[in-house]
Simulated scan of single mutants.
Amino acid sequence: MPQWYEQLRSQMPVTQKWAYFDHAAVAPLSLPAQRALQEWAADLAENGDANWGVWRKEVERVRRTAAKLLNAKQAEIALIHNTTEGINLVAEGFPWRAGDNVVLPAGEFPTNLFPWLNLADRGVEVRQVKTERERLDLAAVAAACDERTRIVSVSWVGYATGWRNDLDALVELAHGQGALLFVDAIQALGVQPLDVAQTPVDFLAADGHKWMLGPEGAGVFYVRREHLEQLRPLGVGWNSVKQAGEFSDSRLDLKETAGRYEGGSYNMPGIAALGASLALLSEYGAAAIAERIDEIGNQLCDALTHRGATIVSCREPLRRSGIVAFDWPTTEPPVEIQRRCREQGVILNTRGGHLRVSPHAYTNADDIAQLCAALEATS
């Protein structure tokens, strides 16, 4: 009887060609996601909008799946195009006053920095807490906060070395300071469990094209229901109102859900494909997937260190994630190693001067062996 992660592997066409270690950048599509895109394209080519209502119902199924993933209410979920859109919904919609500030770790991905810096002309200060290889000191975060701190914004998992932040501790810290917590969840959602009823983050956003195995252009935004009226709605359009579709009704009667942020037409194929991958992953559950990624990550680190690599990422049980940054014992620059590995059928990446690998739950020992062989061929 195959292990469940072998069954998942059978749903990943990429394994037929590549040893794929780049889920922290852009993930390959699952077979169900590929089929969803093909079905949508065929339907639209053959039928135009005759079946639009069927695809619109699919949007709500995906919303339900995303809500279940977070143990959130459906009304708290908006389907967005990318993480940047989700962060800007908060950054631009929050009722700032001159002199307010936002606290976040230094070294964040630009998506979780630029929208906050863009508030300078509104008198909002951005306070960046110094980190070392993404390691975040909660005492330093607390010291950066004061009575004018409105939001603490963090990545659940850092993109460069994979440091995983303790969201429970950060929620407690932010709320204790009278601030709200925003989470950039793109490097963890779908493969790390999160229950927003138990870990009451205030806002969260994640595109689906990494660990959730979806296409680019379809993601998830979560806003705790109690904050819905606090954010000024952005991108308001025909789909933001309760009477969406009744185009002769000109009342601006906004939906009482996060759906008010879905102002225009949906990325129907992207959402359908994301939903197909989320349904596949939900068969196994985020906890089991996290455990498997942990297991394969440990195997990977053992194999790399045995061959002389230096692991840069923190591998403590509560801090590690699916991202492993490392240095290979050679004078070749990381980008050249990346290029030569690609020639050997191995996809990896570089960040911050280090090599970066990011296996998924379907990654196996053969992939690791192929990676190590490709690396050794560069020495």
Rank of each mutant, 00 (worst) to 15 (best):
S358V: 04
S321N: 09
T305K: 00
F203V: 06
D100S: 08
E92Y: 13
P110C: 04
S240G: 09
Q230C: 03
A197F: 01
T65R: 14
L113Y: 01
L119G: 08
G322R: 04
W163L: 06
L189M: 11
W238E: 14
D294T: 11
R164G: 05
Q299P: 02
E46G: 12
L281V: 07
L213W: 10
M212T: 07
V346W: 11
Q74G: 15
K255Y: 02
H227D: 03
E262S: 10
E316Q: 08
P329C: 13
L252Y: 09
E336A: 03
L180H: 10
V102S: 03
R356M: 05
T310L: 08
R9S: 15
D249K: 09
T305H: 00
T161L: 11
Q338P: 00
L113E: 02
G308S: 08
F21V: 05
V196I: 10
L29N: 13
E262A: 13
F114D: 13
H306Q: 14
N239Q: 13
G285V: 04
R127L: 14
G219W: 08
A78T: 05
V171A: 08
A276Q: 01
R225H: 10
E343A: 14
E60S: 12
A365W: 00
E134K: 10
M1H: 10
V346K: 04
E295A: 14
A185G: 14
V59T: 12
